[in-house]
Computed example of a mutant assay.
Amino acid sequence: MTDPAWPLTELGVPWLDLRHAATSLPLPVLGWGSVRRRSDLPHGATWHGYVDDARFRRLWDHPDDVAQSPARVVVEPNFSIYDQSPYPVALWATYRKRWLARYWGGLGLAVIVDLNTCRRWRDLTLEGVPHGWPAYATRGYADRLDDIEAEYELARDRAGGPPGIFLVYAGGAQVAAICAGRGWTYVDDQSRVAREREVHPREATLAAPEFDADAEGCDGEG
């Protein structure tokens, strides 16, 4: 991939364009690759990138797939990095998600910035995100509640005040309760809901839309 005349940070990461920032969060919010056919996705939905990295292989090679779907809003793909990851790996993950976000924005998609970065490399979380950016997302974990608070503060500082969108994906009842109390948007983990449907079919009445957990991307409508 090359950077088509985009401004870059000192680390070589593309700067996002404020004009591409999401200002609304269309429902449903679905994981990339969770719907096998593009025709199955409701028009105007939101893709999120909190899925297995294997689903990003085609995405990086064929980024137009996202723009060709009915979704109009996209959360940056969360390429996995860990505290033990070396710096070049962490920077490469940051570069790729910012490159894709900048590219999709240029195709007319509205972008939500991913904040879910390990603590060691948190300084890279907002590399390439301009001040005033209003839309953010992260993945929730019941055993890492402090991280959600820290990520919200990052978003608040970069937005210059409470961000217009702060989406938390997954984490269970405890995370959902915190989001409700703080006025954040919470979206449940679809795979967990699907598993609960199988175990407690009568109790899972508020499940997310059907999805295919084994799909690796939107491969057309066939």
Rank of each mutant, 00 (worst) to 15 (best):
A5Q: 11
P7Q: 14
P7I: 08
E10M: 01
L11W: 08
L16A: 10
L18I: 10
R19T: 15
T23K: 05
W32P: 01
S34G: 13
R37V: 04
R37M: 07
P42L: 07
H43K: 14
G44I: 07
T46W: 01
W47Y: 13
W47M: 05
V51H: 02
D53G: 04
A54C: 02
A54P: 00
R57Y: 14
D61G: 09
P63I: 03
S69T: 14
P70A: 10
R72S: 15
V75I: 04
N78G: 06
F79E: 07
I81H: 10
Y82I: 06
D83T: 06
D83H: 04
Q84L: 09
P86D: 13
Y87I: 00
Y87V: 02
Y87W: 01
P88A: 01
V89G: 03
A90D: 14
W92M: 06
A93K: 04
R98D: 00
A101M: 13
G105K: 09
G105M: 04
G105R: 09
A110K: 15
V113R: 14
D114R: 09
D114W: 11
N116T: 09
N116R: 09
T117Q: 09
R120S: 07
R122G: 15
L124E: 02
V129M: 06
H131Q: 12
H131I: 01
W133N: 05
G140T: 04
A142S: 14
D143I: 07
R144D: 03
L145W: 03
Y152M: 00
Y152N: 01
E153V: 11
F166A: 00
A170G: 10
A170H: 10
G172P: 03
A177L: 08
C179T: 11
Y186S: 06
S191I: 12
S191E: 14
S191V: 10
R192Y: 07
E196S: 11
R197W: 07
V199E: 07
V199A: 11
E203P: 00
L206Y: 06
L206H: 11
A207G: 15
D212C: 10
D214F: 12
G217M: 09
C218M: 12
G220Y: 13
